[in-house]
Amino acid sequence: MTVPSETARPLVRAQSVTKSFGTARVLDNVDVEIARGEVVCLIGPSGSGKSTFLRCINYLETLDGGQLWVDGELVGYRRKGDKLIELSDRQASVRRAEIGMVFQHFNLFPHMTVMQNIVEAPVRTRRATLEEATARGEDLLTRMGLADKRTVYPAELSGGQKQRVAIARALAMQPKLMLFDEPTSALDPELVGDVLRVMKGLAESGMTMIIVTHEIGFAREVADRVIFFENGRVVEQGSARDVLDSPSNPRTAAFLSAVR
């Protein structure tokens, strides 16, 4: 289906991305390219802009400067001549539907059962009928080891189970890119493993993933590339081994020795 030029083009491309909250500049001329099928971990101290960068990719935040492309399409805007026209709610929603996002605090819909959480978006955005969505939901829950939880409400699940449901919910939209915003930070230590196992399986299946994480061990094991953020800038990037085991930048080294 994909022509060679398609695969050569990066799935995500950020060019001089800049973003401020008030007077605080949280992203400062960030240039990043992420290839199809690549698994990238964003690490760095809190407030370094890595979560904001993730949120910019699916337009939960708007940019103040620079440009972002996902799959060759400009995020949040369409180009017409020399003008950038802001996307309508409908157009932006269509683009977001192609990107899965997993949050630190799960954000499952508490008034819906596990299966209702999973089928809601595919059915509402008319990507699937209820039968199709339910069938795929069953598959996903089985993959997550939660086949028996389909009629349960989120409040009855453990944190690790909630996060796996959240991953299944995002995958139900068959996204071309998955964003993870500190997916294990809110979990009890003994539950982290289950979620990381699911994410590792997903990475091995060839999904393009961008993961904000403090799990350095996981990054070393799974990431094709690690990007270190500090003060809104990309300070260092490279293979997991290079960045994590022999960082060239003293700040990266200081951060890594602090979290270890």
């Binding site: 939960l60 929603s93 977001r96 539907a97 996002m101 949050f103 809601e120 978006a121 995002a170 939209m173």
Partner: peptide, 8 residues
Amino acid sequence: EAARALGL
């Protein structure tokens, strides 16, 4: 945010 991210 979760609902928006799902494309609703």
